[in-house]
Write a protein that binds this DNA or RNA. Structure first.
Lengths: 240, 240
DNA sequence: TCAAAAGTGTTTAGTTTACACCCATGC
DNA sequence: GCATGGGTGTAAACTAAACACTTTTGA
């Protein structure tokens, strides 16, 4: 069956930049190996064509699940890329999303269509298909900026985590070391973390686990607007 | 001439939320009256179909100029709206932009195709065509959030402005009164404003005019990252 | 001389930074 | 008992908020 229109139309795709944190608190990105041309054999962001009648967000979630088995995660629209020649097949406009996932609780499955999916360290990325390097770049920027004023970092951690886990997360994403004492004070003073039981079986003093109280955050942010959650550390300027 | 594809394709449009400040520092939005169905006679955001081979940003700028005569302004992608039934003509995905313009220096021209364009006060908006109310809502949110940490407010002012103009702008956008003394200290301490000559012919003590030094801002923000420019006033919490 | 807005100094409270010592556990 | 991270108290520097008086101009 064919579809005919009076004016030419672009294709529309969705692409997802999926971030995860590995055991050593390194940031990773989920990529799939393309089976077909263009860019067969290259690594690319998971994604695909939007169905007619399908909402964009749903298309992003569907493609992600089809290609990697991952579902029920934090996902948000990033930006729409529409440079005329970004796809050699013709005019393809891509609505990009970024997603945050807890690596340990969302193992990737073999993709249904035999394309393999793999977590790459941010520091060891292969060259990507299409303009996906640019998309990824922008997603990283967004993540770094947003993590400073929205509590989205928790999406990368399991439900219960230690303050050290959380600090490692911020240090990884922001690419800077933070003072332990001050980090803890700042985070706890917000009153959004709930202390749980202690860790078990660690070869050192066991840390308390914490849960992020999302409901409380949402209640407060409705009442108070932005910046209930703000993590920022500006080292004091040293004299020249 | 007709275009035939193997799979159905959506149409892609761009829509622009254009903000301006009027003489009494009220925020206004530029709307056009639709000539044709759907929503003939209704007010809508300026916008239209993206040409094949045309970059999205360019499409937004082109449509804006065609419909309102406005060009060479600050414009940035906002969000892509793609709910399956947002347009009665079929599947239409709209990449929304928002723009900031200095109302006095960019008068609107009669639109080429006789549709009229008009500046509406934010508080006196008509019901809009399609999902444009939602788009506008999101643009406002973005503007309110972004003005706190990026110096985009200056785009709404003429090149030279008084500190009172600037303060009025922030009070309008944020919807809250600010302390004059603290506002001035904060803004001037950043070192990004350059004092010019004084106002003339005002029936009170003439204020100094200032220019925003964009180059200096860009240099600093490259070196120092986010938050060189930060306007925030949090009234101290009162005891209950 | 009056109205209207411009411009500034200072106190106080609160926050952020920087720093160093003790604690609990498994091996 | 020792290695490993966990946990905390506090002084000093800085920043933000709140407040009220003086200045300059045109009418």
């Amino acid at each position: 069956m064919a579809y005919t229109y009076e004016y030419p139309r672009p294709s529309v795709t969705v692409d997802c930049v999926v971030f995860g944190l590995d055991d050593s608190a390194d940031l990773r990105i989920l990529l799939i190996e393309r089976a077909d041309d263009p860019f067969a054999g290259h690594w690319a962001l998971p994604g695909g064509f939007v169905d007619m009648g399908e909402d964009l967000d749903l298309a992003a979630k569907r493609e992600l699940e089809e290609e990697t088995g991952i579902k029920d995660i934090f996902i948000e629209q990033l930006y729409t890329f529409g440079a005329p020649n970004r796809d050699p097949r013709g005019r393809v406009i891509s609505v990009a999303y970024y997603a945050l996932v807890n690596l340990s609780e969302h193992p990737i499955k073999a993709a249904s269509d035999a394309r393999q999916a793999k977590w790459f360290k941010i520091s060891e990325l292969p060259p990507l298909a299409f303009d996906h390097n640019k998309v990824l770049e922008m997603a990283l920027e967004r993540l770094r900026a947003k993590v400073l004023y929205k509590p989205i970092g928790f999406e990368l951690l399991p439900e219960k985590f230690t303050l050290t886990d959380l600090q490692n997360l911020y240090e990884t994403i922001l690419g800077q070391q933070l003072n332990r004492r001050n980090f803890r004070s700042k985070i706890l003073k917000m009153g959004l973390l709930e202390q749980q039981e202690r860790q078990q079986n660690v070869p050192h003093r066991p840390a308390y686990l914490y849960k992020f109280n999302k409901e409380k955050y949402q209640r407060l942010s409705e009442r108070l607007g932005e910046f209930i959650f703000e993590i920022r550390f500006q080292p004091r300027e040293t004299e020249d």
